[in-house]
Design a binder for these strands. Structure first.
Lengths: 354, 354
DNA sequence: GATCGCTTGGAAAGCGCTTTCCAGGTGTTT
DNA sequence: AAACACCTGGAAAGCGCTTTCCAAGCGATC
């Protein structure tokens, strides 16, 4: 009995080339190309056009993108480099980017560095090899000068080859970027807490080498200082940008500063951990004893209990904006899209206890 | 104005070809190719090898993947088609796949259908055009015969072109698949609830056309029937596979069947919504009045309050297994990897109220 | 009726790379 | 010392497509 998998297929279908389609239609290769992939400026007569289309359909022709890329010296793939696809922050950005990409009929090649330093560079190189038309650098920049310089060189090379690079989040002044309101948002959170009556505010921070963290922290600190909040400087604990990191850092923070009435956690994933740590490890009630504000407003933030107050960033819009940016012709000046942050107050914040 | 293709470029860095590297090293194109991309079987002398490598480095040569793909008639990209990257279920699978891909030095091209029916087909075609070496179909199959048949044909075409296809979750008997224990898991959940003492168990289900939903539901139903649980058949409400869908369906379910003491929600995202709906809309205490079990064990399940009891699926492992499968040569028989489900009891389940 | 300017189709030269086939040189065997 | 095998490097033929250039056909113009 015939194995269903080896079911015989019409001889056509496997590796059909444009040449074969042309032959089948009784036209030249050039004409077939013009009909099927033509840039439009050149027209083909109605009759031939029909014949070519019929032949393509009949033969089940599928164009060969690498061959096209080679001949055209440009492709329709864009790269997207993130730290971790499973992280909802990047998931949302990726979703936005992919939606936009679809509208432009672009394919997206995604790479996750899993926060391994050298990998971003390696992937950028890989994408360059693929002759991606553009790449979106979605992960946070770093404070490491060496790494930044290497990356800058690779980016320059990529652009010299005609590719476009767009960053989500600031990386450097001469790159096209979709800027997230990180500084502003940090200030927003602090001021929100202040308005609720909090005067002793701590911060659970992320890896200090990340630019994103630095900016958020910066905004928070500045606001704290501006408001004259005392002891602000040392009521900061850093941890990994993970649930566990947030949990541990929050516990450390409140052990060291039991008088804090509010804490700003620099990302929602950490905040989820912090919420757990405060309650389970420290027996603190949120928001009755301590208020907590997160950052990002990832989808599950509203599902946490208490529902997480947080600084909302338009993540999907950022992804979409990045794609928008890389479609525009490159300008003389680096382009920049600024996206706003917004403080969303939910149930994890309240007035401080008396 | 000059033709862009003939635009003069700086000798270094931009658009360096292997030919140029060879010239710079004083060797033939063939030798340079062997050194830089050689399959290893063919050796090049120490001296020339060094010279080529030095030249490549000096000229900042970056290989041209499309050209390689064309010449080799195979590429190093694999496609991954999901419903939604922002959904933690797919995020986890994607993360696992990407980790494995990295070890194999594969690039992954990702496509999100956003649950739009025809898009899966379109993307598969796109991936075929890209001459992807393989594609992973991570989204659930559907009960729609027409769509399934079209997909089958496209898959056959893809395979005829030499590509490999693997599914995460069952789609058909003659496809290589990483099978998730959907039926088993449904039973597991029901039995777990039974053992806690629940006798009136309802189900919040997902879109009935999804195979995944059907299988989970099937397992649950069978267990229910096996246990002799009455009224099981109609205590089922379906909703979208989203938070809102889960919320609405859960509310409907408990309005219609106020006597239920436990509900199984067929995915964690819906369960998050259900938790909210039961509490906020219906004033029901979980788990004191109603127990809730989810499905998938996505990362945030443990962060919900009450922490969600759920059926754990090894999502990352599934993604990795899929990549593993497509690296193996294609066998005569379709291959299959079965991944286990495990019931994780957390705080959203308890004995039923008296 | 010859000329011009269009439009439309085809021939052919690549795009950057892999790989087969050959040739020359070396070391080995008898 | 001749014959052989082997190793290493190069020339060249594609891979499937795009695009330039040219030629042919045709109605309009003078």
């Amino acid at each position: 009995m015939a194995n269903p998998r080896s079911r015989t297929r019409p001889a056509h279908s496997a590796g059909v080339t444009l040449q074969q389609v042309a032959q089948h239609a009784g036209v030249s290769l050039a004409t077939a190309s013009r009909v099927l992939h033509g840039s439009g400026s050149r027209t083909v007569g109605e009759e031939l056009r029909r014949r070519v289309e019929a032949a393509a359909e009949e033969l089940r022709y599928v164009s060969n993108a690498p061959a096209q890329a080679l001949a055209r010296a440009t492709s329709s793939v864009v790269g997207l480099i993130v730290h971790d696809v499973a992280d909802p922050y990047f998931g949302a950005i990726a979703a936005g980017a992919m939606r936009a990409a679809r509208e432009q009929r672009l394919m997206v090649m995604i790479a996750a560095t899993f926060r391994e330093p050298g990998l971003e560079l390696a992937y950028l190189r890989g994408l360059r090899a693929q002759r991606a038309r553009a790449v979106i650098l979605a992960g946070s920049g770093t404070v490491d000068a060496e790494a930044t310089a290497q990356l800058a060189e690779e980016i320059a090379g990529f652009e010299a080859d005609g590719g476009r690079v767009v960053c989500v989040g600031e990386r450097g002044p001469d790159l096209d970027t979709v800027a997230m309101a990180n500084r502003t948002g940090g200030g927003l959170a602090v001021r929100g807490l202040w308005e609720l009556g909090h005067r002793r505010i701590g911060v659970v921070s992320g890896p200090p080498e990340l630019l994103t963290v630095r900016h958020r922290l910066d905004g928070a600190r500045r606001a704290l200082r501006g408001l004259g909040v005392p002891a602000a400087e040392d009521a900061i604990e850093a941890g990994d940008f993970t649930r566990e990191g947030g949990r541990a850092a929050a516990v450390r923070l409140l052990r060291a500063h039991p008088d804090l009435t509010a804490v700003l956690v620099l990302n929602d994933v950490m905040a989820a951990g912090a919420l757990g740590g405060l309650r389970d490890d420290l027996g603190l009630a949120v928001p009755d004893q301590v208020s907590v504000v997160g950052y990002d407003d990832v989808p599950f933030a509203a599902d946490l209990r208490p529902a997480l107050s947080t600084v909302r960033l338009p993540l999907e819009a950022a992804g979409a904006a990045a794609v928008g940016l890389l479609l525009e012709p490159r300008g003389d000046e680096p382009r920049r899209v600024d996206l706003p942050a917004e403080l969303v107050l939910r149930a994890s914040t309240a007035a401080p206890p008396d």
